[in-house]
């Protein structure tokens, strides 16, 4: 049994008001089953609106599935007492794309990183300070940063702070939802390298959600492709990326732009066959 098991997860949203008869049903996730083993980074890709974030929220307990089960460390996440859930949640952390709204602007960096420690561990203030410093160093920030506030940092630095907070309790699994998508490519690579290194060091597992196939390919060990609420293809060996078979995966793969201007620049754009919608 894996670290995380999803069994036939289903989540439907209802939009609009039923009074006006404009109610619309969105089947964000339909019947998804997935397994994530310890020490593995699973990349989850798919076009926008395919249900990736919804799935992530269900794993975190932020959204309740209509159907299906989430098993984490051998326990059913939606069948636990509050206290047990809290204990389990310390092993399950998250980093979102929007790094600014993820932190409380009135707390210093030291307080932000200490927050999960305070929730779970009883440390003296000296112990706490030592730990916070340790994590700041791990993510490549300096000790003076401990007294600064979020607005003193760039997006990339703040994302490192979010990562420091996520690893502070040495969790088992971190869900990274578009965690590097808005950053410049230099910072992206720095953070991806950092994540890869932390994964080795602390035997972490990641669910790396992104629409960016290049970033996923760089960090993930395995891949799942989502389309309209379903996992349509899986890959256990990233070296086989070019061999993806499902039309949706192939389309995603062939749409990745070469990161340099080539002779037939715009060719890829001009010659693109009309994509059916």
């Amino acid at each position: 049994m894996g670290l995380l098991e999803l069994k036939s997860i289903k989540k439907t949203y209802f939009l609009g008001s039923s009074v006006w008869g404009k109610r619309k049903i969105v089947e964000a996730v339909k019947n998804v089953s997935l397994t994530l083993e310890e020490g593995v980074c699973l990349g989850l890709v798919g076009e926008s609106g395919s249900g990736k974030s919804t799935l992530g929220k269900i794993l975190l307990g932020l959204e309740k599935p209509d159907q299906g089960e989430v098993w984490f460390q051998g326990r059913n996440l939606y069948n636990l007492k509050a206290k047990e859930l809290k204990e389990l949640r310390r092993n399950l952390q998250v980093v979102f794309q929007d790094c600014y709204s993820a932190v409380n602007p009135r707390l210093t960096v030291g307080e932000i990183i200490a927050e999960p420690l305070r929730n779970y561990e009883r440390l003296t203030s000296a112990q706490e300070k030592k730990k916070v410093q340790e994590f700041l160093e791990i993510v490549g920030l300096c000790l003076e940063d401990i007294h600064k506030y979020p607005h003193h940092f760039s997006g990339g630095q703040l994302q490192r702070i979010n990562i420091a907070r996520a690893i502070a309790l040495k969790p088992k699994l971190i869900i990274l939802d578009e965690a590097v998508s808005a950053l410049d490519v230099l910072v992206q690579v720095q953070i991806l390298n950092l994540l890869a290194q932390l994964k080795e060091e602390f035997q972490l597992s990641y669910l790396f959600i992104s629409h960016d196939l290049q970033a996923v390919n760089y960090i993930a060990d395995r891949l799942a492709v989502m389309y309209k609420g379903e996992v349509v293809e899986r890959l256990d060996d990233m070296e086989q990326l070019e061999r993806l078979e499902h039309p949706v995966s192939k389309k995603l793969l062939s749409s990745v732009l070469p990161p340099y201007p080539s002779g037939e620049r715009l060719g890829i754009i001009n010659n693109m066959t009309k994509i059916s919608l």
């Binding site: 490549g140 230099l186 720095q190 390298n193 990233m238 070296e239």
Partner: peptide, 19 residues
């Protein structure tokens, strides 16, 4: 830092400090 679709680790970025 361009990734492309290779899995080669990009090391050069470590030279640049985070500040």
């Amino acid at each position: 830092s361009r990734l492309g679709l290779t899995r080669r680790k990009i090391k050069s970025v470590q030279r640049v400090s985070v500040s």
